Amino acid sequence: MAPLPASQSNTRKRRHNGFWRRSGIFFTALLALLQASPLLAEPGDAQDLLTRMSKAVRELDYQGSFVYEHDGRIDALRIFHAGGANERERLLSLSGPRSEIVRSGSSITCLRNGAPAVLLPNRIGARLLPLIPDTRGHSFGNLYLLDVGGEDRVAGYRARIVDVAPRDNYRYGYRLWLEEATHLPLRSAIVDSAKRTLEQFMFVALDVGAAPKESDLTPGSATDVTASPAEAPLGRAPLWRVAELPPGFVFAGAQRPAQEPNQAEHLMYTDGLADVSVYVEPRDGNTPSAADRMLKRGVLGIYSHDTGAWKITVLGDVPRVTLERMARSVQAVAAP
């Protein structure tokens, strides 16, 4: 067969090359779409990913450094975690005043700037790694909407993004970056209803599976100091209750602040992810009653309400509407 004239041959080559250029662009775009698509995991997998996250954060050994953005500042911290049945962990500040928190067994000990150590109760699900919700046994129901987002890379690890969005204005949401293989949280952000980031932490260096040494889990200072408990068992039924709880919140227990009068109570409420503390204490009769006021420290809100003889303080990582509703509906179960 006779060769094509040069003009026709060039035209065919241009068409041929144009086809592959267009095809290459199409396949490249398709590949990028698939890589970023949330369809890599079914929406129903979000619950499973969160369950695996809660297990990983308790059972894995890991150590690393992370930054924590909150209340208009950025702190650098380092954490050592020994997982398993005898879970232990230690959190150290790398910037600002020297401080550390050690969790072992049923206690959390706080050490700061050479001040006396403070012993805090170790609530079930408490974590030293910030902004990590405890999702064990939580069905979410009508309170939160779960969604699996795309992929990202954090501290050198590939991560899957999971969104936990509130269905109402009584709670905040989470965006979580979970390590692809172990599901350990690499980054977490608390977001408002407009999906704006309010607080976040992110690992910048992490070694998953590296077991901490004993010295990594032991307080570096004030080791001979006996910590004073911040709270004591109530020893009786609560005298107070929140009469108008926001949807989904339930009573989780009560204690007594150790340094307050016996009539003072600390009531705890939770919706499974968000926790709220309600403190009821007698007012000094010589101090005039104060107007209600709201303080914000990052996502932590503190709402104060006086009832005359009693001062009520409600605090938690929840919006103001939640704190105010709870503070204004505290009622006596029996006459104090």
Rank of each mutant, 00 (worst) to 15 (best):
V154I: 10
R88W: 04
V148T: 02
M268T: 15
S54Y: 02
N262A: 15
V208G: 03
E324Y: 08
P319M: 02
G235K: 13
R241C: 06
A258Y: 02
D168G: 06
G308K: 10
R241Y: 12
A210W: 13
A117S: 12
M326Q: 01
P185S: 01
S193A: 15
P282T: 04
R160E: 03
M1K: 12
A82D: 13
A76I: 12
W240E: 05
T197R: 04
H266N: 11
P288Q: 11
F19D: 02
E100L: 08
A41V: 03
L50A: 06
T51K: 08
A82N: 06
G235V: 07
L30G: 07
V321I: 15
F80A: 14
Y279D: 07
M202S: 15
P246G: 06
V299K: 04
V314D: 06
E69P: 04
S289G: 12
G125E: 03
P247A: 15
S9D: 14
R127L: 06
R167H: 05
A117G: 15
L145E: 15
P5F: 08
G150K: 14
P5L: 05
A258N: 03
Y170W: 04
S54W: 01
V225S: 15
S329M: 09
Y269S: 04
A29R: 07
P130Q: 08
R112D: 05
R127Q: 11
D306A: 02
A274Y: 07
R112Y: 15
S215N: 01
S9V: 04
P116K: 03
R175T: 01
E151H: 07
P282Q: 00
L120E: 14
Q8A: 14
H138D: 13
D134V: 07
A222V: 09
Y144M: 09
G298M: 05
R15K: 10
T109D: 13
R52K: 15
L186N: 00
R187I: 01
P319I: 00
I25P: 01
R21P: 02
F19N: 14
T313Y: 03
S107F: 13
A290Q: 11
G125H: 05
R160Y: 01
A41D: 01
L217F: 05
F19Y: 12
A126G: 10
S215Q: 07
P97V: 08
Q47H: 08
Y170F: 10
N17R: 14
V204K: 13
W310V: 06
L34P: 00
Y303V: 02
P319F: 03
G209W: 09
A159L: 05
T307P: 00
D61Y: 00
V118S: 11
G44H: 08
G220E: 12
